[in-house]
Design a binder for these strands. Structure first.
Lengths: 211, 211
DNA sequence: CTAAGATATGAATGATCCTTCAGTTTTGGA
DNA sequence: TCCAAAACTGAAGGATCATTCATATCTTAG
């Protein structure tokens, strides 16, 4: 893919007065709302400004492009997810296989559901801009954490912990994503809550060569 | 989401002479190439026409919008996948759990890989247009086929075959998707080939109450 | 060979949208 | 109270694009 890469992602100016901090936050949530209701393709700077109750110019005082705005939002969301998962991993260190599987699945679902709105809104941004750098950083952190976690499970040797962690991360991320993207009836959500931990556990039990 | 839904998807005119059939095919492949190299956001009618070696007007003789063109491509791709999976399901009827798990995972990977180019290209379209109708039709067919398949596995009772089929479909689709979308090194592909069948099998073994 | 239908062309139209900047308003400290 | 810095405004420039249609070229049946 040859999509626009991040040019200058950082805010052009950091808010100094309370007033502007409020403005930036308003722009932020307006963007997410519009993203969710109309998708990336329909997201225009004017609409964001209007929804946020400010003028277009104001937006450009804090973000050099539309891109930068979208990147800022993605970054915040990724940080949230990664933090949540790292915390969970810490808590699960040394637990047995079932505990780890359920813990990871639950942590992932909780993190996604906690901000289900932004999560769903964001999935589309990747299609329009090149997020690989941002994503990869998060992915590496996540896989690393999972690997350490797996290696710390007592009585369970993994032949190739890195591959197992890779697969588990893909499984978690992918499964939740497709379900969230496809309408997602409440019914589907319940099913996911119930089945995702099982899928993780099933996979881990299969690849763990018990000693 | 409130994205544009399919208006008039069907070709405005069906090619009658050999010449025009060639043209339509050229437009088709040009679109996929551009989609893959630059993403949806960069896909313009002019560029498609140029790449296909025809003029813009020609494109509009067969598709009423850009939308219709994209939908036609998605539809073709979905049909291919669904057909491949239904065929595989037929072949696997009556096999044991391991055989079914491996068969489904392999069939899914093969189908995606056979046309890896279009597969990757297409993932972005969903962000811009409302594909839920198209997708749901495919999803229902797929889940149905998997459910029947599961019920036909000897010596393995599933408490809730529908939920299991739902989860398996999400797992297959999601996992492969995230891996394909994230750059996808050859290394990642090998890992997926190896681990996806295991993940399916692990999950199925766990939820199958052996008799 | 010829006419009618099929197919192709691409400049022009109109709409949308990002981004800028000259000017206005607000804020907070002196 | 007063002013310099901080914020905000929004019309206008400039670019990109989807879509149309009048015109030209090609194909084939008769």
């Amino acid at each position: 893919m040859n999509r626009p890469a991040p040019d200058l992602l950082k805010p052009r100016k950091t808010p100094q007065q309370t007033r502007s901090a409020v403005t930036v936050e308003a722009i932020h949530t307006a963007t997410i709302q519009l993203l969710l209701s109309d998708g990336v393709a329909r997201l225009t700077t004017t609409r964001v400004a209007a929804r946020a109750g400010v003028s277009v110019g104001t937006m450009y005082q804090y973000y050099p492009h539309k891109q930068a705005l979208l990147f800022a939002i993605v970054e915040r969301q990724l940080d949230m997810i990664v933090t949540a998962m790292l915390t969970a991993a810490e808590r699960l260190a040394g637990c047995d296989l079932q505990c780890v599987a359920e813990g990871l699945a639950t942590a992932w679902l909780d993190a996604k559901m906690a901000d289900i709105v932004s999560s769903r809104a964001i999935y589309g941004i990747a299609a329009e801009f090149d997020l690989s750098e941002l994503m990869n950083r998060a992915k590496i952190l996540l896989i690393d954490a999972i690997r350490s976690l797996l290696e710390a499970v007592p009585d369970a040797g993994f032949t190739d912990p890195d591959t197992t962690a890779f697969m588990l991360a893909a499984l978690l991320g992918g499964t939740v994503r497709v379900v969230m993207e496809s309408g997602m009836a409440d019914d589907d959500f319940e099913r996911l809550r119930q089945e995702l931990p099982r899928a993780c556990l099933g996979y881990l039990q299969l690849v763990a060569s018990r000693q």
